[in-house]
Computed example of a mutant assay.
Amino acid sequence: MDAKTGFFYLFSAVLLYAAFRVITARNPVHAVLHLILAFSQAAGIWLLLKAEFLAITLILVYLGAVMVLFLFVVMMLDIRIDAVRRGFWRHFPLAALIGAIVTFEMAAVLMTGFRGMEEPKAIAGLVDAAGQVLPYSNTKALGKLLYSEYLYPVEVAAVILLVAMIAAIALTLRQRKDSKAIDPAEQIRVRAADRVVMMKMPVTQQASSEAVSAPAAEEKKQ
């Protein structure tokens, strides 16, 4: 067994263990961490298959953005494990049935779907005008394929993502009527004259003679 085969079995074993722990971990944070481990092992397998673009995309997009966001959301939510476990046995038969179907389909594909197929061969490098062989780039070939033959689906996906991003921004920036938030810039620029106004008002009732003589009598006693 060569080094490539050994790394494949190592990545596969860790990937299966991490995937199993994702669905069996009791703590949601631990489940997300095992999912991050599973994605990293899948990226390693893609590197062994010479699909470096997919491996780097998996690391940057899922591990660097999506899974970190999931981890922050799970840590911020007040998830009660006892309330989640109440309906476990009620939904267990349906979950077991779906799991059995998925397992049967994967076994059918692995046992019968790859027979008679040869190992994919590496594409030879391109030849330039001088007759020299250029090194083959998987990322460059994938980019040419996406922006030539699959240009229309890429544009449709880009428009859908743009609409989703605009909708998320619109939902976040909408103002609530019951919000009592105050702009800090307005608090800094405030002046005393803007908050307190001194007004002169005419006297509406004269003070009685008893009210005026009472303080004078107290002063004489002292």
Rank of each mutant, 00 (worst) to 15 (best):
P135A: 10
N138K: 04
T204W: 11
R176H: 14
M111T: 13
A38D: 09
K4W: 02
R176I: 03
M111I: 12
E52W: 10
P202I: 08
Q222A: 09
A214I: 13
Y9L: 13
L47T: 14
N138D: 13
F11H: 13
L15C: 03
A108W: 03
N138A: 10
M201V: 15
P93N: 02
V133Y: 01
P153W: 00
Q206I: 15
G87D: 06
I36D: 08
L110N: 07
P28W: 14
K50A: 12
I45L: 11
M111P: 03
A158V: 02
V102P: 00
K121E: 09
I182T: 10
E219W: 15
L162A: 14
I23Y: 14
F114W: 05
A157K: 02
E155K: 15
L126K: 12
Q205I: 12
I98P: 00
R26Y: 12
I98N: 03
I160M: 06
L49K: 01
A168R: 04
A122L: 09
E149N: 11
A157P: 00
V22Y: 06
V109S: 01
V212S: 08
G99V: 03
W46R: 12
L69V: 07
T57V: 09
T172R: 14
V61E: 11
G125R: 05
I123V: 11
H30V: 10
V109D: 00
K221F: 10
A211L: 11
D178R: 03
Y62R: 05
R80C: 11
R191D: 08
V73S: 15
G6E: 14
G113F: 01
S12N: 12
L110P: 00
T139K: 03
A214D: 06
R90V: 09
L162I: 06
V212H: 02
F7H: 13
S12E: 11
V196F: 05
L162D: 11
V102T: 06
M198D: 09
I169P: 03
N138S: 08
K144Y: 07
I23N: 01
L15S: 04
Y152R: 15
A100M: 01
M75T: 13
A185K: 13
F92R: 07
M106G: 06
V212K: 08
D194Q: 02
L35C: 03
K177C: 01
S179R: 01
R86K: 12
G125K: 07
A65R: 11
K221G: 05
M165C: 08
P184S: 11
V156G: 07
D2K: 06
A193M: 02
A167D: 01
L60M: 05
I166V: 05
Q187M: 14
I36E: 09
A207D: 15
K220S: 12
E119I: 06
V154E: 15
L162S: 15
H34S: 08
M1L: 09
D78E: 12
R176M: 12
G113M: 02
V109F: 00
K121I: 07
K177N: 07
A141V: 05
V212M: 15
I166D: 01
L33D: 08
V73I: 10
L71F: 04
D78H: 07
A185I: 09
K50D: 15
E186P: 05
P28C: 01
A129K: 05
G113R: 05
M198Q: 06
L49S: 02
P28G: 02
P120M: 00
T57D: 12
Y150V: 07
E218I: 15
V127S: 03
E218D: 10
Q206T: 14
A100F: 02
A38H: 04
K177V: 03
P93V: 05
V197C: 04
F88C: 08
